[in-house]
């Protein structure tokens, strides 16, 4: 039942609160959107609770830890020309991920304009940016594990919960990004080979994948704020 077609509805939609009321008291459907989009929103709401639980758990163990919490600006510094620059890699990673949200938004636009080729290349660009984010995360992890001796159960800089929370939260987020890259690639290649053209020329899936991608991006902003900057 996933094949759908875009047809303009006959009745005009109301604005503001009146629209909310009429949506919810309507028959057939409560939101005038593709069911896949509704489902993705509900899933993301659920996923929000997962990451919130992770972050609240991290804050609690940070409070219960007796050893000093390592200084993130020092742990996550890279040397450039002999000078350590705090959070350099993280800044680049954040920039890349935010950029990828931009290319994703353009892909959604191109999808609705039925420009198959542009949609494909923009989604491919998004996936490549996402993959490079994961690559940098691998670099960061290996640097911490191999060079600085950070382990999930202990680290030389201070509280053992630092490593535990770091690997768990960035690991879970990294898995989300990796899954997202695969998802984007699948959709991108289906756009390219005309899969959606044959199914009513409907490119809503690009927007649905985009929702997921923006969410993963937004979660990273919170991880960046609460883990790296705090």
């Amino acid at each position: 039942m996933s094949e759908t077609s875009i047809v303009e509805t006959q009745e005009p939609l109301q604005e503001g609160m009146a629209g909310v009321v009429s949506d919810f008291s309507s028959d057939k459907q409560s939101f005038h959107v593709h069911w896949g989009k509704a489902m993705m929103w509900i899933f993301l709401l659920s996923d929000t609770f997962i990451f919130s639980s992770f972050l609240i758990g991290y804050m609690t163990v940070r409070m219960s830890a007796q050893d000093p919490w390592p200084l993130t600006s020092e742990v996550f510094a890279l040397s450039m020309g002999g000078e350590p620059i705090p959070l350099l890699l993280i800044a680049i990673m954040t920039f890349i991920l935010i950029t990828s949200s931009g290319t994703m938004a353009m892909a959604v636009n191109m999808g609705y304009r039925k420009e198959k080729k542009k949609t494909f290349y923009l989604m491919l660009a998004t996936a490549i940016l996402g993959a490079s984010f994961v690559g940098m995360q691998v670099f960061e992890w290996s640097k911490l594990i191999l060079d600085e001796g950070v382990r999930p159960w202990a680290n030389p800089m201070g509280a053992s919960q630092f490593g535990a929370a770091f690997f768990m939260i960035t690991g879970f987020h990294g898995m989300h990004v990796t899954g997202g890259v695969i998802y984007l690639l699948v959709v991108a290649f289906r756009v390219k080979n005309g899969f959606y053209e044959r199914r009513g020329n409907d490119y809503s899936i690009v927007e649905i994948a985009g929702l997921y991608w923006h969410f993963v991006d937004l979660v990273w902003v919170f991880i960046f704020a609460f883990f790296y900057l705090w």
Partner: peptide, 19 residues
């Protein structure tokens, strides 16, 4: 669960309002 919630919200027959 995603299925149940989306079905109730988006897949009701003609005349079937939430209330």
């Amino acid at each position: 669960g995603l299925n149940y919630v989306t079905t109730v919200l988006q897949y009701r027959c003609k005349g079937m309002t939430l209330m």
